[in-house]
């Protein structure tokens, strides 16, 4: 298996993450989509690390991405709860006061 196979999987996963973000009308899906996108990026990091010249960088970046994802998930969940508290809805289209 070459690096292209992993890249393909990562690319499709990335695209599916975007689809998840923009197609569903529940703010939790935005969260899930973001996790998919981060996972796609991680696959790329690790794949290039494996097929590259044997350094550590890709792996370390993947670890930090996971760490950031954990932090992001905690904050995002708090934001979701707050949005729900504020708008009494979990639809992202309801939270459009940014327009004004």
């Amino acid at each position: 298996m070459g690096v292209e196979a992993y890249m393909a999987v990562a690319g499709v996963l990335f695209a599916l993450g975007i689809v998840c973000i923009i197609s569903r009308r529940n703010i939790l899906y935005v969260l899930m989509g973001v996790e998919m996108i981060l996972n796609a990026a991680n696959i790329n990091f690790v794949a290039f690390n494996r097929y590259g010249n044997g350094g550590m960088e890709g792996r370390m970046f993947a670890i930090f991405v996971i760490i950031l994802a954990a932090a992001e998930a905690a904050i995002a969940l708090a934001i979701v709860l707050n949005v729900f508290h504020l708008f009494q809805s979990v639809r992202p289209s309801e939270a459009d006061i940014l327009r004004d």
Binding site: I21, I22, A95, D96, I97
Partner: peptide, 8 residues
């Protein structure tokens, strides 16, 4: 529109 999904 203020809708983040559209922005994305």
């Amino acid at each position: 529109t203020g809708r983040i999904q559209q922005y994305i």
